[in-house]
Design a binder for these strands. Structure first.
Lengths: 222, 222
DNA sequence: ATCCGGGTCCGCCGCGCGGGGGAGGGGGCT
DNA sequence: AGCCCCCTCCCCCGCGCGGCGGACCCGGAT
């Protein structure tokens, strides 16, 4: 409502491939009310161009030299007052960057294979309302997802394959004898491995070792 | 691209408040290329109306009598071949229903306070491309979030306050003696509680009890 | 009034577990 | 050839733990 009256939607394109930028420019410029005011071929350039031109919308590729689209998005949203809406452009919709982009504050996503009309309307929609199709709840969800897996503790990598196996079975609630049976080795061997696991995890007993495994997200690594 | 040529976008409104339906109808009908073909005042009605009219887009309120919007969405997407895009209408954007709606397969969200232009463009956009602003990755994220906390097992509620306390300390890696000290009771008392916890959790030893606590999300309940 | 369940304690017993040490074999690195 | 790590297995010892039975107090339900 606010920007519709004051003039056209001002757009900056950030993509390292010239052809992509040209294609987008052609599509968007043909549309009344849309104006492509600048381009950038890298993340760093995107940040400075946006800082200078203050567009309403940025179409940001994820894979770019110097700084990728995610960090460029972060920098723009963090450093600018009244920042533009940022639409992230990806090739694959199950791209892992999607999470990070959401967390970084992207307002929308576009697939590179999207047709012209979708592109135009996505830009229009995003320029008007940031949270229309991306509720705060979704963003919170992404944030949660991100900070849920921060630290795979150092000791995980130090476990030998056998020790990992033993820890996994410990964390399944098996006794040493059961683990021995399951692994086809003697109980004494299992005890040795358990002792190593306790030492490496800094655990006092098997219970603490299991706790460490869970806290480390060790059980999710299936 | 496909539907634009073959005719107007056919819309069904599902909301238990007549005023909301009327308002939406007025806004959408005034727009060229959009046509409101039907209305429903409940989730159940929405399912049958959609099944009969086969619209392109459904605007679905979450809170409705009989069947809520979420389950109506599920039913529609599950039972119909070539189902319509469903846009969920919520009052608050951090509504917890957002997760479930995403998991149910909703293509977009609208706030009831959205302005007319946003509404129209959201409908247009969603009619054209389902996954444009909701990548598969986001949907997967919601699904993961959903099945992460489905079952707070029955035994959790059956624990007495003292037993919960003991289990929490067990899951912190403390020995019975340490728990006794921390709780200001005798070691024998702790042993009694531990025995109760083991019985209720179906655990064989404290390790399995701790596992049960983690699996039940018992440790997140801080 | 009785009963029941939660919380608090106490003993005894057996066993799985953890700590310590030793020993042999295989594979990789130098 | 050495060396070291990993895997394998053995002994003994001590203790925390889990299973059993019994006891008391108290508050609420019957």
């Amino acid at each position: 409502m606010t920007e519709t009256a004051v003039g056209p939607i001002r757009i900056v394109l950030a993509d390292d491939e010239r052809m992509v930028r040209t294609a987008l420019r052609v599509i968007l410029s043909a549309e009344p009310g849309l104006e492509v005011v600048g381009e950038a071929a890298s993340g760093a350039e995107a940040v400075s161009v946006v800082r200078e031109l203050r567009p309403d919308v940025v179409l940001m590729d994820v894979r770019m030299p110097e700084i990728d689209g995610i960090r460029a998005t972060e920098q723009i949203l963090r450093t600018l007052a009244d920042p533009p809406r940022i639409v992230v452009v990806t090739t694959f919709e199950n791209d892992s960057y999607v999470y990070e982009a959401l967390r970084a504050g992207a307002s929308g996503f576009l697939l590179k294979r999207a047709d012209a009309d979708s592109l135009v309307q996505a830009v229009r929609l995003v320029a008007r309302s940031d949270s229309l199709l991306f509720p705060a709840a979704v963003r919170a969800l992404a944030a949660e997802h991100g900070r849920a897996k921060p630290a795979p503790p150092a000791w995980v990598a130090r476990l030998t394959s056998r020790e990992s196996e033993v820890l996994r079975l410990m964390a399944a609630g098996l006794t040493n004898a059961e683990i021995a049976g399951r692994m086809g080795v003697g109980p004494a061997t299992v005890k040795t491995h358990v002792a190593s696991v306790l030492a490496k995890t800094g655990a006092r007993d098997r219970t603490q070792a299991v706790i460490a495994a869970y806290e480390a997200g060790f059980m999710n690594t299936d």
